[in-house]
Write a protein that binds this DNA or RNA. Structure first.
Lengths: 360, 360
DNA sequence: TTTGTATAATTGTCTATACAAAGTAATTAT
DNA sequence: ATAATTACTTTGTATAGACAATTATACAAA
């Protein structure tokens, strides 16, 4: 029998479930007419009002369409049985640095699970990141990949918390925020910088300038790797050839730093730039000052950006993979697979080009 | 009286309308309890089932919440009075060419109207563009900015039609598709190429090679501009120094073209590359062949990509503005402001750098 | 060929009634 | 004072029956 009168489950609900099963099993197919109310009354022994309640509910749910004078019909298996997943990506600027590569990695991985990616550029400003965060929340995204801005840690935390309040999983990409237990994908910045510094030292360089922004976790780690490598090789750390800029990269400012460093009397032989952009600035300034390259000055960068005509020795960061891993993390959060927060640290490797010369 | 028994309008519907009005006019406020079913029976003279039908409908619509044993309550006036607008952006690859600039322009303009941008890279392939199109449609985007792929016109048309069937406005960015009346944002490719060719001619060049992909509307127009400029200056068009590649840009292939052109006996003095990437490839090949630059060979490109260390004379395309205008067009479509399709042609301008030398 | 009419089938609207289930509030027992 | 009981209110489930509105079909009339 279809209806169990002794069951505590409401009879309209039993009928409703039965009808749904019939549709699901293809007994009533798409566009088919299901039995009339009267027939269902005969079939189940229920009152017509009860039958109607079951049918009405299924109609509201979109399983059925009722047509006056004609009957009740099974609707086309409707749109989107699985909810659309949208992931927000907040980068400093989609035009610069590694952002395009990160975006593409994230996009490709998202596409694999039929997810979509909303693009947000923060210009490294808290206020823009906050604006985007609000919009992402309004769009009820399923997760966010966030590259922290150049603002203070506490402001970056505010943004993360905004998402957390709405139970939206957040993955920090590349940079991290202190005192915040979060999923995080980055590269081995300390180790990478350590290896790169060692490489310079093995090439005979002792006076190695280090120029970086001290507000980003990544560059701070690189600086630590640099210092450790000096120490392990018995080279005295010299603060006078280190530039620690409190703020994000800025072409004009870093050009001045480059000029200052290159004009110093105690001649440096190599520059370790906090990232490739800085390396490029150094190269341009050095060239303008009449230094020949790499004969007069060896330069290494960090990131492996695509400078077509500048053959820069640098540390390649697997940015594309970072995008992939970020989306994977978001995905596992959405599916509630993991508990506790994960930090994924990807390996970077040295790309030896022609910007470093053995120091005699 | 609340209910007009003689009206042809169903009584449950009359009650439903009345209740909705009371809520709207604030007689029943948010979180308020509305009269119980029994009270409404007294008030209206209807049967309880009829009253229930009215209440049930309003519950389904989200106006009311029923609580067993407690009563029926007015819900909070729900979320999102204004719908979120999401715009899809389909570019060949967010990592290359002008895509980042276009994306950023679109993003900034979208942000101004609190819209969001979903990023899609097609790799210039029909199949990927189609995949993204389907996902954008599933996400019910409000509009799409589409850079046609390197596939055939008919395949690109198929994708556009997919959106049109769902009444989703489409704007073609940069490239166009023949025989398709659509909103379109581009630059004056013919005129730009004409001017750039004239510039070369005024610099004394007569043997000017032209190398391009003949599958894109933009580069075809540039080629036409090039030919027209030759003609207007009385220079014989020479097909043997023109490379017309049937397919998208491809580094390996274009390197071979460059080698072939540069090895020819009838020595060319300048190259007009279909876009900056091609110009770069020519530069690299020429350099590897021992040609000095720009003394032995003048090169011009098109796009004004950011090649840090290559001082390329080129035609600057206002790509950022193209992104802005594209979103503006989508916006006016969404608001139903315009009828008929619009073509916006932005002005490009010559950037004179150091890659062109006067030919003696 | 078109238009009108009758009829059957089916869903839509509505009334009247009864008991169940889930809360609240007052009362009673401990 | 606290806990258990009871009474009451309100929505939830269910039955039985009546008539209205809409559609398809067949047949008749213009």
């Amino acid at each position: 029998m279809i209806i169990d009168k002794s069951s505590p489950i409401p009879q309209y609900f039993q009928l409703q479930t039965w009808l749904k099963e019939q549709i699901h099993h293809g007994v009533f197919k798409v566009e088919d007419k299901i039995p009339t109310e009267e027939e269902l009354v005969q079939l189940t022994g229920l009152a017509r009002a009860t039958v109607r309640q079951a049918i009405q509910n299924l109609t509201n749910m979109g399983y059925l369409v009722r047509k006056k004078g004609l009957g009740t019909f099974v609707t086309k298996p409707n749109i989107s049985p699985q909810k659309q997943v949208i992931i927000g990506l907040i980068v400093p600027d989609i035009r610069s640095g590694y952002a395009p590569e990160l975006a593409r990695g994230a996009e490709d991985e998202a596409a694999r699970s039929k997810h979509s990616l909303i693009l947000c550029s923060s210009d490294d400003l808290y206020i823009k990141a906050d604006f985007h965060a609000n919009r992402l929340i309004e769009n009820s995204v399923s997760g966010v990949i966030f590259v922290p801005t150049a603002s203070s840690d506490s402001k970056n935390r505010t943004i993360v918390q905004k998402f957390q309040e709405k139970n939206i999983p957040v993955v920090l990409a590349d940079r991290t925020i202190p005192y915040l237990d979060l999923d995080h994908v980055t590269t081995d910045n300390f180790e990478g910088a350590y290896n790169l510094t060692n490489y310079l030292i093995k090439k005979g360089h002792k006076k190695i300038s280090f120029v970086y922004s001290n507000i980003f976790s990544t560059e701070k780690l690189r600086f630590n790797g640099y210092k450790k490598a000096l120490e392990d090789n018995g080279i005295q750390y010299d603060p006078s050839i280190v530039v620690s800029h409190t703020g994000p990269y800025n072409e004009e400012q870093f050009s001045k730093y480059a000029q200052a460093i290159l004009k110093q009397k105690k001649r440096i032989t190599a520059v370790f730039a906090g990232h490739d952009r800085i390396a490029l600035t150094f190269y341009l300034v050095a060239r303008d000052m009449g230094l020949s390259f790499p004969e007069d000055l060896s330069i290494v960068g960090y990131d492996d950006l695509d400078f077509e005509t500048l053959s820069l020795t640098t540390m390649h960061q697997p940015i594309y993979e970072m995008g992939i891993e970020s989306v994977k993390l978001i995905d596992s959060r959405i599916n509630g697979e993991k508990n506790g927060h994960q930090s994924i640290v990807l390996k970077s490797y040295l790309i030896e080009r022609e910007s470093v010369l053995r120091n005699k």
